[in-house]
Each structure stands twice: as C-alpha cells, then as structure tokens.
Design a protein around this nucleic acid. Structure first.
Length: 485
RNA sequence: GGCGCGUUCGUCUAGUGGCUUAGGACGCCGCCCUCUCAAGGCGGAGACCACCGGUUCGAAUCCGGUACGCGCUACCA
C-alpha cells in the first residue's frame, strides 16, 4: 500500500480564515509529500451551505501562498483529478450514493427531524445510546418511489452492519478498533442534495488517488465510518494518520476565546512565516535530535509521520516569540531591509526618505535587539526622528549638576572632528573625559540620553556614527536646553 | 452516559527494558562580557516519568486496572 509517490491533501472547509491547527495539518501534509517526492493537494470542503463565507476560499489560498505552502493541485491551479471544490462535484457524490443504495449499503430515509429527535429522546431516557433506528431501511421500493415523487425531503444513510469489528492501523496511533454497534447510520447525502463530510471525503480521496489521510485527531472517531464506506465501495483504503490537537494554555482545544487562532492574526502581529512554520512544526513532531531551529527545506528532509506525537500540544506564545526573534536575526539584510521599508511605509515616518545605506546601518545596529520588524522603529525611534522627550529615570540617574558643562566640552571636541568614524568618537570621548578628570560613564550616559532620549540601545558610538556628526551635535545642544533636572 | 484517544520539568519535547543521579529547548533566576539594552558564554532552580498493581535480576519504557484530560457521539466540518 505504501505508494512510491504518495498523494496527500489538505482539505479545509472555508470558514473564513486559516486556523493555526489547520496550518499545522497543512504543513505536515506538505512536509510528508515533499519528503516522499509526492503530491500535495488542496481541496475545499464547502459542503455546508449554512456556513458559507464570502471570500473564504480566496483568503485561504492567499494565506497558504504567503506562508509558502504551495500546492500541486487544487482550486485556481487545476490538476488531473478536479474539480477541487466539493460544491462542484455534487453529481459524483449522487452517483456513488446511488451505487451504494443499489448494493444495499445505503438507503433513503424520509424521517422528519421531529421523529428523529423523538427517537433520540426516547433512547436517552431508556439509557440507550442515541442512534437512528433504521426505520426507513424497511421501506418498500414502491413506498420509496412514491415518497420521492411526492417531493418528500429525504437523506441517504449509510447502512452500518451490526456486530462488526471495524479496525484500522493509524500511522501515529497504531491499531485502533471500533464496534460497529456504536456507529450510527450516518447521513451521506443531506436533504439539500449536498454530501456530508464523510461521503464527500471518501469519494474524493478515492478518485483523487489520495494515499495518506493526514488530519486532526477530531476525525479519529469518524474513521470507522470511512472504513465502512471504502469497504462498501470495494475501494482500497488510504493510510490514516491522526494528528494530536493544538491546545489552549488550560489544555482545552485551541479556541478563539483564549487568544488568536487565525494565521492572519499572527501575520498581522508581525510574526514571520518562517517562525510560524517552524513553531507549528514542532508542536507534535521532532526529528529525534536537539534541533529546534528549522527552515522549511530542512524540515522537509527530516520529516516523517512515524515521529509525530500522540498527545496534544499547548500553543505556547513565549516559544513562538523566541523563534520569531531567532528567525528575524538570521534573515539576510536585504530581506530585513525590505521588511523595514514595509514597516516604515505603514508608520508615521512614511513620508520620510531613507537611503538603503542608512537603513542597513540601523539594521546592523538593532539586529540583535529586536524580536519583531516593527521594533526597529519602536525600540529605536531616534534613528527616524529627534527625541521628543528624555526618559525620566535615565535623566534622574545620569544627568547631573555638572553634566551640561561636561557636554559642552565634548561638543567642542566633536566639532573639530572631520567625518569621524566609531573609533574617532570613542577616542575623543575618552580623551575629553580624561581631561575633565571624570569617568567615561559620566559622558557616555548623558550623550546616549541626549541623542536617543533613551537609556538602552546599541553601542553609543554606533548610534553616533549612524546619526552623523552634525545631527549628533545638534541633539547634544538641543538636550542642553531641554533636559531639566 | 457510550465509544475512542491521550498522560515525562510551567510549556514544547528526547527517551522504544540496563548507557538515566531522566537529556535538550522556551520561559524564569544568577554570574561573565559590558557605556546601556540585547545577543552570546557559563551555571542554577524546575519532572517521586498521573496513580495503583503485575511481569522481569532490572521498567518512564511491557501488561492490567484506576483517575484525570481531550475528542467524537449533527442533514458541521
């Protein structure tokens, strides 16, 4: 059954956004496909008309594109096994539902929602498991034809045989077994003519030649129904791999209420796609070594479904944050430059002109100090504007009675420099401190405060070089007037 | 309730019967570096491997039970 070129699919329903759990499922499918030299297919499971969301499919495709999980076949791209939107495959489901009815593996059901809930209620009171009572299974051919002719709404149900062990071997969970008596006669075709997930899923996976079904654990309990369907059709079953769930910090299933769940939310917050992918990959998988920092191509090389964990994983923002900083630091400068420019364009500095050379200097100075691109601006606004205020605590700490006097001497010394570099500033400052018989710190801290308005940042002399002599002197003089003890 | 799945530091995890006084990472704390903040280096606290029983010379690792958590139990996926 292990095909040489596996075909896997990511099959989300278009509910409006891509959930990070969905991203992880998509990623594992993608990694597995690429690792095995197989195909990664995108299929849209839009069989619930009540949950249809305008633009959701486009959005999904855009997010996948942004994050770099390129699919081989799917909507807007095509392929030999389309269409890849289930709403465009209704005829296929209908045809195969009829085949199942022919074979007595499925049957028409005309029961009203009212009768269904009555039956269920009765069973509950008797302490039985609520299950459809196969009432319509015994309808005669004439009754069925008359009902249909008279326009009575109906569904098609799977005829689950009693007393059957339904078993399968899951790649991550091993041997799993269910008793068919515990499986309801699942609706296959709804009264609106649309298939349910189970029907559409099995039919599509078969005709799209899917070899491995890699999906969330919430589907594990439904898998026996799918197994029954494959058997009823006489089709070869794919391999199953059920992934552990992503959890909230309180270990409940990851939900909107307790934080962001949409990939776009994280994107909007400034997380890099590299970090998101890296983070989510490690939630339930590791290569068995100590590597935690990954690029997509390395993950592809090392990924295997056999090394996927069984237990749910808490989505830990602190680690995502660290990975983001880590990826950001390792990003090539030209990428950082592009990202910084995007960030600037969306900031209050959008009308200012900065040369690549200037921004690259800022990047070099701040690289080790930021976790998000926006922090290049937030943590060092002084590279983009003169300080408006001076950090209060820092003033208290380093701006002394004699500071103005010392700074005046330093300004004088700086003025004499001719296009100074880092060492020139440093030497002059040291020399001035010596002449004034004070420690370097007595000058360094006030200068930092005067030029940046802050007490923390890159090395002072790096800042001065970036600002340039003229601006440095201006800011020093400006501070002389504006800093109040 | 029924069925299924799961349970190793706060979190992500390594571990597939002896190499384990249970390893790594994030976070936290301390030290070093140092003009500050980071980054980096070094170190520390943190897990009676859910619990009980069994198998074995030996168990986090195998078996059974219990507890707890989660999932499913829809004409939602």
């Amino acid at each position: 059954m292990i095909s040489e070129h596996p075909r896997v699919r990511f099959a989300p329903s278009p509910t409006g956004y891509l959930h990070v759990g969905g991203l992880r499922t998509a990623l594992y499918n993608y990694l597995f496909a690429k690792n095995q030299n197989g195909k990664f297919i995108l299929r849209i499971e839009d069989t619930d008309r009540n949950r249809f969301v305008e633009g959701a499919v486009e959005n999904l495709i855009n997010v996948l594109k942004w994050i770099g999980l390129d699919y081989d076949e799917g909507p807007a791209k095509g392929g030999n096994y389309g269409p890849y939107m289930q709403s465009e495959r209704l005829d296929i489901y209908k045809k195969y539902a009829e085949e199942l009815i022919e074979k007595k593996h499925a049957y028409y059901c005309f029961c009203s929602p009212e009768r269904l809930s009555e039956v269920k209620e009765e069973q509950k009171q008797k302490g039985l498991q609520p299950k459809y009572d196969k009432h319509c299974l015994s309808l005669s051919r004439e009754e069925i034809e008359n009902n249909i002719k008279s326009g009575m709404p109906y569904v098609v149900r799977l005829n689950v045989p009693p007393d059957l062990k339904v078993a399968f071997d899951d790649i991550v969970r091993g041997h799993v077994e269910f008793d068919s008596n515990g499986i309801d006669d699942q609706v296959l075709i709804k009264s609106d003519g649309y298939p349910t997930y189970h029907m559409a899923n099995v039919v599509d996976d078969h005709f799209m030649k899917i070899t491995h079904v890699v999906r969330g654990e919430e589907w594990l309990s439904s898998t026996p129904k799918h197994v029954l369907l494959y058997d009823a059709f006489g089709w070869e079953k794919p391999q199953f791999a059920h992934l552990p769930l992503l959890l909230n910090p309180d270990r409940s299933k990851l939900s909107k209420r307790q934080g962001d769940v949409a990939v776009e939310d994280y994107r909007a917050k400034g997380y890099l796609k590299e970090a998101l992918l890296n983070f989510v990959a490690l939630l339930g998988w590791n290569a068995g070594d100590d590597v935690e920092f990954y690029y997509l191509d390395e993950m592809i090389k090392k990924f295997s479904l056999e090394r996927v964990n069984k237990s749910g994983a808490v989505f830990d923002l602190a680690k995502l944050h660290w990975l983001n900083a880590e990826h950001l630091r390792k990003l090539p400068d030209r990428d950082l430059l592009r990202l910084l420019r995007e960030e600037l364009a969306a900031s209050k500095f959008k009308n200012n002109d900065y040369s690549d050379e200037y921004l690259l200097k800022v990047i070099t100075a701040m690289k080790e100090r930021v976790s998000f691109v926006r922090e290049y601006i937030e943590k060092s606004p002084y590279f983009f504007e003169r300080p408006e205020t001076y950090e209060e605590n820092a003033v208290k700490k380093s701006w002394k009675e004699n500071t103005p006097e010392l700074l005046k001497k330093l300004i004088e010394a700086f003025s004499k420099l001719d296009s100074p570099n880092k060492e020139d500033y440093e030497n002059v400052l040291h020399k001035t401190a010596e002449e004034l018989q004070v420690g370097n710190a007595k000058l360094i801290h006030p200068v930092r405060l005067a030029t940046s308005g802050l007490s923390a940042g890159p090395g002072l002399f790096d800042i001065l070089v970036i600002l340039g002599k003229e601006e440095t002197i201006f800011r020093l003089q400006d501070a002389l007037e504006r800093v109040k003890i």
